[in-house]
Nucleic acid binder design. Sequence first.
RNA 1: GGGCGAGUGGCGGAAUUGGUAUACGCGCACGACUCAAAAUCGUGUUCCUUAACGGAUUGAGGGUUCAAUUCCCUCCUUGCCCACCA
Length: 825
Amino acid sequence: MKRYNPKVIEPKWQQTWESEGIYNSTDDSTKPKKYILEYFPYPSGAAMHVGHVRNYTIGDVMARYARMQGYNVLHPMGWDAFGLPAENYAIKNKISPKIAIEQNTTRFKHQLQQMGFSYDWTREINSTDPRFYRWTQWFFLLLFKKGLAYQKESLQWWCPFDKTVLANEQVENGRCWRCGNTVEKKALKQWFFKITDYADRLLEDLDDLDWPEAIKSMQRNWIGRSTGAEIKFAIVDHDTSINVFTTRPDTIFGVTFLVVAPEHPLLKTITTKAHAVRVDEYIKTSQAKSDIERQETTRKKTGVFTGSYAINPINNEIIPIWTADYVLMGYGTGAIMAVPSHDDRDYEFAEKFGLPKRPVIVSPDDTIENPTSPQNTPTLSSEGLMINSGKYNGLASAVARDNIVSDLEKQKAGKLRVNYKIRDWLISRQRYWGAPIPIVHCEKDGAVAVNEDQLPVLLPEIENYEPSGEGRSPLAKVPDFVNTSCPLCGGPAQRETDTMDGFACSSWYFLRFADPHNDSKPFDERLAEQWLPVDDYIGGAEHAVMHLLYARFWTKVMFDEGLIKFEEPFSALRNQGMILAPDGQKMSKSKGNTIEPDNLIGQGYGADSIRIMELFIGPWNQAANWSVDGMGGAFRFLQRTWVLVQEFIESKTNKPDAGRITDSQVMLRTVHSTIKKVTDDIESLSFNTAIAAQMELINGLYKQKAKDRFSDQQIWEYAITTAVKLLAPFAPHISEELWHMLGNNSFVNQSEWPKYDPAYLLPEKVTIAVQINGKLRDVIEVKPGSVQSEVESMALSSDVVKKLVGDQKIKKTIFIPDKLINFVI
RNA sequence: GGGCGAGUGGCGGAAUUGGUAUACGCGCACGACUCAAAAUCGUGUUCCUUAACGGAUUGAGGGUUCAAUUCCCUCCUUGCCCACCA
């Protein structure tokens, strides 16, 4: 008997599949399409570990299953290779990013191939290939021409370690998402994409997506739409006014002071001479505070009085104006009306600086005369009846809200306003390793788009690509690159030297897979129409408000331009659960706790065992600790399958034992119910139980074999063949090998998925639970479909039941056919 | 502080519509094979208690029901995301 040796069979089939091209997608097929995609990886210096492998295993099982179900499947792979990690790796290892990327993609590709993933490698793309980023630049120009790409000087997040600016989405708790260092604010002229123009559509279209609710709510939260009003407060003794944003205009009678952010443009104007020194000091100290410090002060309120007063437009009350850094310049108008009786932040501030905290405006218990005071627990979300609010008293707060805004509108002191937390996407980076922004700066014509036929603007190969930290990309030091002529007037001009954020590439790469070699446009409309949108997109949740939001934005822009006919790129999104190290910690190179597939394969487990382990360890979308012992179990299952098939093949040539009889009904029922179970489980993405069902099948067949020694060859042939097919999406190599050993010349991975016949599912006998008062007391075996009277008399004749019922009266009998009978006494 | 999710044997987990809780795997124990070990095969394995019987059990407590891991309420623990967003 041949031994199961993954080291021999796995590379053999990988090469055969590749040379036969059996996973390549055809553009002209009559079959229905299915586009299954995993996030294209970042080929960093650290190799892939079993956590990454899980992501690709899920996608691969789905792709293989879909093929066997008769779909024309697109399952491509490529490299998201621009960006900081690749560049930092190159700097550290003193090689050029280009060489680093070549080394890393070679390694990653080898890792993917040795896992037997069924990618169409003829469609491989690399975002750093000029043939690819030419079109990334083309999309930049599309956005530029549509007025969705613009330059603006403002305070931006700056990472002093990576020496570049960062988008808001790329700053987590005041730290750089890549290196974890504290970020600073720096005033720089930067390029932005106007994603805010699409905020409403990005929000509304979330509803219809088959995405995890967690991701949808993260995006909703990030877009942060809130409706309210902008209200104008005139300043006493000044010719100016301050606008505030509030979601609760109904609480305007509770305003006891105004607060403006320290960065507010009117702050210096309205500050009186007597208070100027203290205000100036306060502005300076809050500027010196990094944002992380501003967040870490455990919300202790600070602030100073400006000396000025404002007039409440609803009742002409005079209220003081303060400045405090709990009000953020970047949101709303950078100024608020403080309502201490209904906002805990305002309450805390009033408490600390001795400002008035009354009156209560919304009665929480709907009594106008003596409401329970909410002063100790102010809340912005409370609704109720209006009190202390003049003519609005007695109205429901939601009604008063509308009335007050329209009344203010009449006196031109207020209007409805929708506010968003989302900011425009800062796209420029002061780093070398990215797609150059295809813009030329001309003294006469300003920022001018490079002509389309001049694309790509090639990233020059340079000696010194380390960031300078001066706020300019290293490309600024390359005169040959910088100096050019203006596409409009032909006069001398300078190229933009910033490069694009790596997320620009990933905002459209999924479209390129439909038409990866097109040199005349980013993709053919017909091919995009055929393959897109992505049916199943598989990846971790870490891209929730970055890539997944950006890609949706670009897709909508392309839709508006008429390039594509769909508005959402990813119909279904699947977030796989993280694989943690056996100790429960995140796997990372720095902790030295990573487990790499290469080592496991070297130990003789094989890719198939790893694939089984990745899925069997638990639900695919939940985190799991990697288990070293569990690998042995996965391997044993495959080996038992191997041995069983070998023994069956040998039984073909040895005469079967004539004295033994195969129970064909039991065999057929076992096989057909397993087909049903595995099929249903794959459809519902319950991969762990799909594998468990196959283990049960193999265990069951072992028991059959012990009884009948493969007596009925025909039924055994069917059982074995089916078992091998069911295993194919999960463990493709061993399945392919066994398939060929069984005498097939085709590929099991191109075979048809087995179907079950419901007629075989019905068992000869079913076990009925016999309960008394809902407690299990006995079990009886009856024919399926037995009626109540039959089951009841059988159950009542059971010794246990007789004893427990005694001469008590049975009040009620509950009968569930083929399941249980319950006597209530 | 806000949002979303999760708590089941020694461990990872299963239970698809309220209907026999603990499938499958790991680990462990015993047996077979072996000079021996590994590997493999087989049997057992929720806990307490017993000669047998029996009792308890899905984070805790309560509720609905003939029947609750499943539905409802309160609380505890824990994971992830967002966080002074007015």
